[in-house]
């Protein structure tokens, strides 16, 4: 009886193994895989204390071009499908300020301009602005061709004597980017 049971069990196992099959798989589905990570990070931070504004002779107290290759890097430029650049300008000085942020290409051409009119403090009224690129937003080619960022700050009234009542008066420009990339 034991032997018969043993043979039966082994026979059953062999039959099971002979019944092997592979359910139909579709490896072509891999072509449909979409890998679209969202990358987010800071871009540029500029900080100018009120004392600098007061020391400036001209109303246009600050202009600087910053080399910035983050957007034109092939990994980013070839894969970006949309994104948002966010600015936050805070002014705790006593000055009316105009701030301009421009994206510049290799030839020095201005590709995009963002203009901020900033009121004096107090009260402090931060200006937050989100600029979409791609889709219904501005052209992604602006980002792809950007090789520098130009920041210009103008003391609108030419006031170089007043001092804010707030501690550590300064104007700051924060900026960040949040972009979707198509990796596959």
């Amino acid at each position: 009886m034991g032997k018969k049971l043993c043979y039966f069990l082994f026979g059953l196992l062999i039959l099971v193994s002979l019944q092997s099959c592979v359910e139909e798989l579709n490896f072509d589905q891999f072509d449909d895989l979409q890998i679209e990570p969202v990358l987010e990070g800071s871009i540029l931070y500029v900080e100018a204390p009120e004392s600098i504004i007061n020391r400036a002779v001209a109303a246009n107290f600050y202009t600087q071009d910053f080399n910035f290759d983050g957007f034109s890097d092939a990994f980013f430029a070839d894969r970006v499908i949309d994104g948002v650049v966010t600015y936050l300008v805070e002014n705790t000085t006593s000055k009316d300020l105009n701030i301009t942020v421009e994206f510049i290409d290799d030839g020095g051409n201005v590709l995009d301009t963002e203009f901020f009119t900033i009121t004096p403090a107090p009260p402090v009224e931060p200006v937050l602005r989100e600029i979409p690129y791609g889709g219904t937003g501005r052209s992604l080619d602006i980002l792809r061709n950007t090789s520098a960022i130009r920041v210009t700050a103008e003391n609108v009234n030419g006031d170089t004597s007043s001092t804010s009542s707030l501690p550590d008066p300064k104007v700051t420009i924060k900026s960040s980017g949040k972009f979707t990339l198509s990796v596959k």
Partner: peptide, 18 residues
Amino acid sequence: GVEVILPDALSDPDQDFW
């Protein structure tokens, strides 16, 4: 990101922060 803090950043107008 690129950080520019005045007045220190004014010392070299050709400074490449990136």
